[in-house]
Write a protein that binds this DNA or RNA. Structure first.
Lengths: 243, 243
DNA sequence: CGCGCTTAGATTGTATACAATTCGGGAGGT
DNA sequence: ACCTCCCGAATTGTATACAATCTAAGCGCG
């Protein structure tokens, strides 16, 4: 049998997801199971399992007849998805503030924020790889800070939506100066959110977490407005319909 | 092939979900695919598909080895799930207020609320069947009121969590007088939420929708505290661990 | 010339056989 | 008595064959 991550189904899931996000298919393109099966060298049974998974992730949508199509999203869909994420992170932050956070967990969060500072102040400009990694970690920390598996799970779900994750627009932006400014603002928001959580200011923590997500929305808008963006530089961007 | 709802996979999904929610299995019981396959008269392929679906619904959890267990939830998990639902419905209500609602959609909502009044004022006590149906309709209306497929979808997801749906605690409660009072309060909240949405009071609409969900939380607590509750009267209650 | 029907090819849904792995129990040794 | 190792039964993962259905092209008819 297969260990975690070693199964054919997991391989199919990863491979197909990468293909879709990298723009290997057109928006709305119909995917044939047999064709994909041949292309990936994986039989239809685990492939169908992977496609079901991608369906619930939102990357595929099912026709009435049962055939699968690559999903198509509008700008507003992504914007709404980010708002949903912000709302749920706000909930997590508020609950964490209300329920309290152990000193041990607090230390972990501080460590992540210090690492983010370090990534920004690197001698050779910003260390994007480290920033993305630690930014993701901090958002994961918030998701778990309330100590509620349900909240954590729902946030994870919201993050799976194509471009809604906290680090979706942190790749392929290295040289942009307005983007650098937004990193500074984002990091300040990180510290402020953690402060509000630790002082038990639930309402403040929630409002800040929401606004923090809206910063991602602004970045999305900037990326789109800048016309010469390489569509393949940001995974999933090919799923967005132009208008 | 199979039309929507006619496939073996859909039948397996419905049958297995009903079995689980009705308490046919113990909490944490390991489910063998072969045994279930025999019991339901459905081969393993569509059965596995159904089990994957139930896994993402939260009714099943997977062991490292791949075997499936019936999920177990705590009281607090359910409480959190209801809070998540309230938060997302609050988001939907706020967005609806901010973005505006067409007169046509407003009329639909008013129709649903009138039907709810009618169900409560029925000559022979409360018509629970009608109340549940229209209560569900109103919550669906809110989920769609923002005009955002993403928001609608996330709310639908949150509702799938075992006892988190808006009508989860409306069955098996017919004779309870404190419960009747909560129906009156709930219906008042319905009207107030709609009013806030239509007058563009986004913050108010959001706060009310959240508090409305917390009423469901109070009902849950009442059901649990009342010791003589028939555990099979409320679908999914068997998944809750006592402590 | 356009439209509906028929039919063949392609595609999805399902069952089943087989391979790989896990799990539990029993034998044997210390 | 307890621990370890090993083996067989049970269980899950995968491939594949077949059945049911969809799709699209070609044909006949108005």
């Amino acid at each position: 049998m297969a260990r975690e991550g070693n199964s054919q189904a997991d391989r199919a899931l990863g491979a197909l997801r990468t293909l879709i996000l990298s723009g290997a298919f057109e928006r709305g393109e119909k995917l044939s199971e047999i064709a994909l099966s041949d292309r990936l060298g994986i039989s239809r049974t685990p492939l169908r399992e992977a496609m079901m998974h991608l369906h619930q992730e939102g990357l595929l949508s099912r026709e009435d007849s049962g055939s699968a199509r690559v999903s198509s999203y509008t700008m507003r869909d992504i914007s709404d998805a980010i708002e949903v994420r912000g709302t749920l992170e706000g909930l997590a932050a508020r609950l964490a503030a209300e329920r309290g956070v152990a000193a041990e967990d607090h230390a972990v969060a501080l460590g992540i924020l210090d690492a983010l500072d370090l990534a920004m102040d690197a001698a050779s400009g910003v260390d994007f790889r480290a920033y993305v990694k630690n930014n993701t970690s901090f958002h994961d920390w918030i998701a778990q800070a309330a100590g509620s598996p349900i909240v954590t799970r729902e946030i994870a779900r919201a993050n799976r939506l194509p471009l809604a994750g906290p680090s979706a627009f942190l790749t392929g932006q290295e040289g942009q100066s307005p983007f650098l400014r937004s990193l500074i603002i984002a990091q300040d928001q990180h510290r402020t959110i953690l402060d509000a959580i630790m002082t038990g200011e639930g309402g403040r923590a929630e409002a800040l977490a929401r606004e923090h997500a809206r910063l991602a929305r602004r970045n999305l808008q900037q990326v789109i407005d800048r016309k010469n963006t390489d569509i393949s530089a940001i995974p999933g961007l090919s799923l967005i319909s132009p208008n």
